[in-house]
Amino acid sequence: MNIFRISADLLHLASFFILIFKMKATKSCKGISFKTQLMYTLVFTCRYLDLFHVLGMMITFNFAHITGLTLYNTFMKILFLAASYYIVYLMRTELKSTSDDARDTFVLWHILAPCAVLALIFNAQFTILEILWTFSIYLEAVAVMPQLMLLIETGEADSLSSHYMFAVGGYRALYLVNWVYRYATEPYYSNWIAWIAGFVQTALFGDFFYYYFVKIMSGDAALKLPT
């Protein structure tokens, strides 16, 4: 595991904590797109189905293929799943009245349908698990679109929301560096599905990163988009 990968994962983990902290501290989920959060739960659910495989190996005491990396991945996968479901749960229960649903107008089928079709066509293996994994990679790349649309609609974001978006966008950018590093150092490593999707994902954050850094440089992370 290289430094870029571990940093990326920790940044991703931080993004959940920032969002949960923001929602708990302000008792509000204003400015956060429920649709984007819902897509992330779907992304992790489809991607981490191999948890059952690991669980199966553990309950049958088949530890031969369980490495340190397996344990690390399993731990993080469970955390990511728990955090994203918890966020969706909070947004639909105690914080529902503060949810920006009226402005969260993105049509989810506009990303769900193309991602499903692409996953059926462009995958490494035509098996259910592999197609769902590929679908999750494609969907994650564009899952931020409702959030970006809400940000444009609102025209501004408070500083915790900005930090959250920086963390969730920055993590995939670090994965890009990790992939370059692995491609250069590991003879059999190549994962073009993730590379292309990861590039699209990072590119979608391009404008946001620009405004974020301008704000950070001026000593304030609250964003106000130019009108």
């Binding site: 994994w133 994965y175 993730a194």
Partner: peptide
């Protein structure tokens, strides 16, 4: 194998 390498990330 190759597929293990592809799926060792999060």
């Amino acid at each position: 194998g190759d597929s293990d390498v592809r799926h060792d990330e999060l």
